[in-house]
Computed example of a mutant assay.
Amino acid sequence: MDIAIIIPAYNEEKFIKACLESLLNQTYPARKILVVDDGSGDKTPELVEHLASSYENLSLISRPKSFSHEPGGKIVETFNAGLKALEIDYDVICKFDADLIFPENYLEVLTKAFQENPKLGMYGGFCTICKEGTWQVEQLTNADHLRGALKAYRKTCFTDIEGLTPAMGWDTIDEMKARFYGWEVKTNPDLLVKHLKPTGQQYKKNLPAFFGTSLFRMRYSWSLALLTCLKMANNKSSLSFFLKSMTSFQTSSSKKSTFLVTEQEGAFIRSYRWSKLKERLFQNFRNNGPRGSVG
């Protein structure tokens, strides 16, 4: 099974060498590792070129710096530039971030999972961050969500979902589309990857507005958006996040913002989200009884 890895990179000189060395020393090697430099102003391209001189399966392409201001847009556009430049065939395509360190058996476990389950469309592990000297799972999403930093797609699944959407929410849209087309999306809690820098800091100020807009563009209903924004605000302990994200959702509705999924895909997303919400409520009730809090 041939694996192709595309790594978008921008000013990653502190992390790119460790990331690439962890991928170049896998027990199951990737056929191709392609780093796409997005106009870095540091030594990122030089470090990649130096390593590439010793490894035939590693190469670098460069593009002018992207000035996209929407979370997701910049990184997907950079990934897509690499996809267009990819000159090999592959069975699995991976989009990995440049600030990760992978365990040496990561690709071996990934390959085995795809080989054993022909309906598996997307697969990956979990990001961990260092807190007080220990590596802990980065608790940002539900356990069934495959983080955008670690995406791996079976080629036929990737074709079915028509690649990645250059907008915030792309790493949810891809999973929902995969499920819509009958593919399974799996995460492996034993497959832990070191994440060397915090997630999404550059978008912290405008994140609530982007978040609310993305929910509308994925065709969330008002009630589902309300619960989703409440949950996110609770996770962040921020009432202002809830108010800003819901305001953005309603504003997007009045402006008739462009949708990112079809009507049928939107109906599937709403149904899936409601079913998961009911499942978590039932699980919480079963664990805590009628007086337990709902989180």
Rank of each mutant, 00 (worst) to 15 (best):
M1A: 12
D2C: 04
A4G: 14
A9Y: 02
K14T: 13
F15G: 01
I16V: 13
C19R: 00
C19A: 13
E21T: 05
S22E: 10
L23K: 02
L24Q: 05
Q26R: 13
T27K: 14
V35P: 00
D37C: 07
D38Y: 06
G41Y: 04
G41M: 03
T44V: 10
L47Q: 15
L47A: 04
L47H: 07
L47T: 06
E49Y: 06
L51M: 09
A52I: 04
S53T: 09
S54Q: 12
S54P: 10
Y55S: 14
N57G: 12
S59G: 05
L60N: 07
R63S: 04
K65E: 11
S66I: 09
E70T: 11
P71A: 11
P71T: 07
G72E: 01
G73V: 03
K74R: 15
V76A: 03
G82A: 13
A85H: 11
A85L: 02
L86M: 12
Y90Q: 10
D91S: 15
A98G: 12
D99G: 10
I101G: 02
I101D: 02
P103R: 02
P103H: 10
Y106T: 10
E108K: 06
E108W: 11
T111I: 04
Q115H: 09
L120E: 02
G125R: 01
C127K: 00
T128Y: 06
C130E: 15
W135H: 07
L140P: 04
T141F: 08
L146M: 14
R147G: 14
G148F: 06
L150S: 01
A152R: 00
D160M: 03
D160C: 10
A167Y: 03
M168S: 03
W170A: 05
W170E: 12
D171M: 04
T172I: 13
T172Q: 11
Y181S: 05
G182K: 06
E184Q: 10
T187D: 02
K194E: 15
K194V: 07
K197F: 08
K197C: 07
T199Y: 11
Q202T: 07
K204L: 07
N206C: 01
L207V: 05
F210N: 00
F211D: 09
T213E: 15
S214L: 12
M218E: 15
S223P: 00
L226Q: 03
T228F: 00
C229S: 11
C229M: 14
L230T: 11
K231D: 15
M232Q: 12
A233P: 03
N234Q: 04
K236G: 09
S238V: 02
F241Q: 07
K244W: 01
Q250V: 11
Q250Y: 09
S252R: 01
S253H: 13
S257A: 15
L260G: 00
T262L: 06
E263N: 13
E263W: 05
A267C: 06
I269S: 00
K276M: 08
L277T: 14
R280E: 12
F282R: 14
F282A: 11
F285I: 07
P290F: 09
G292H: 03
G292P: 01
V294L: 15
G295W: 03
